[in-house]
């Protein structure tokens, strides 16, 4: 097929658009970029204060415990929020040039992922360093990050394509995310959930991709971590596979519906 791009050319488009997205979002200001770190910090500070002081959650090293779940959660939620409408708002662009919708979605995920990595290394790693917890799990973090970002790419691309077909996907997703926040053990340990309700946690795909970070950083145990990474990998591959199958089946209808 003469019109198909090589991976290098596709990658150059993604990188150019990611960089342009970031310039547009922060308008080349330091204050804009500082918000990337300040946003999760403020979220973390408020939640940490409320759950420790008001709800009296007694978890050792609660700050670190909360950060391990909260930062990946913010990445997932912000990605869903930003990427679900991205193809819908780029209808004219997609109709005008032969641009892959995947480039548009991927550039937004990478924009968010770079922000997440900055927050991760500027906030979480120093907090980890100040604790007396083992650093052994750090070697597994790249794998947890790969599974997380791959799963988010698959999930967000799927949602952004669905948004073209159903105009309320964005609102339904937002509603589901609000419910999931309370059903996902981010600000409370999974052990707080009574055994008869644990299945709700086991079937939560977002938590499956977030959980390995907790076992890398806060509660390192090699055997448990390997299992959690495996589960995260399965969820991530499933999201990517579903997105690819959905796209292949709906590609023509997608461009006609634009």
């Amino acid at each position: 097929m003469a019109n198909k791009l090589e991976f290098r050319q596709f990658w150059q488009q993604v990188m150019a658009l990611t960089s342009a997205n970031m310039r547009s979002r922060y308008r080349n200001t330091i204050a804009g970029f500082l918000w990337v770190v300040l946003n999760p910090l403020i979220m973390y500070s408020v939640q940490s204060f409320v759950f420790r002081k008001f709800l009296k959650i007694e978890v050792p090293n609660y700050s670190l415990f909360l950060l391990c779940g909260l930062l990946p959660w913010i990445f997932v939620v912000m990605s869903i929020d930003m990427i679900t409408p991205v193809l819908d708002s780029s209808r004219e662009l997609l109709k005008s040039f032969n641009i892959s919708p995947f480039v548009l979605a991927l550039a937004q995920v990478f924009d968010n992922f770079i922000n997440f990595l900055f927050a991760f290394f500027l906030v979480l790693i120093p907090t980890w360093g100040m604790s007396d917890l083992s650093f052994t799990g750090i070697f597994f973090i790249p794998l947890a990050l790969i599974f997380l970002v791959s799963g988010v790419i698959g999930m967000c691309f799927l949602l952004s394509v669905m948004q073209i077909f159903f105009k309320d996907v964005r609102f339904i997703t937002s509603f589901v995310i609000n419910i999931l926040f309370f059903m996902t053990p981010i600000f409370y340990p999974v052990e707080y959930v009574p055994a008869e309700y644990r299945f709700l946690i086991s079937y939560n795909p977002i938590f499956a991709m977030i959980e390995p970070f907790r076992y890398c950083i806060y509660d390192y145990d090699f055997n448990v971590l390997v299992f959690k990474l495996f589960k995260s990998g399965v969820v991530s591959v499933s999201f990517v596979a579903i997105a690819i199958i959905f796209w292949k089946r709906k590609r023509n209808e997608f461009f006609i519906k634009l």
């Binding site: 547009s24 004219e92 005008s96 040039f97």
Partner: peptide, 26 residues
């Protein structure tokens, strides 16, 4: 299929032209 479209309209004409070059001549 259209000539009055910007890739990221918030960016300058120069930056949009650079993106168009990436998309049209990949």
């Amino acid at each position: 299929f259209n000539t009055t479209i910007g890739v990221i309209p918030e960016l300058t004409g120069r930056e949009n032209a650079a993106l168009l070059v990436k998309f049209i001549f990949p």
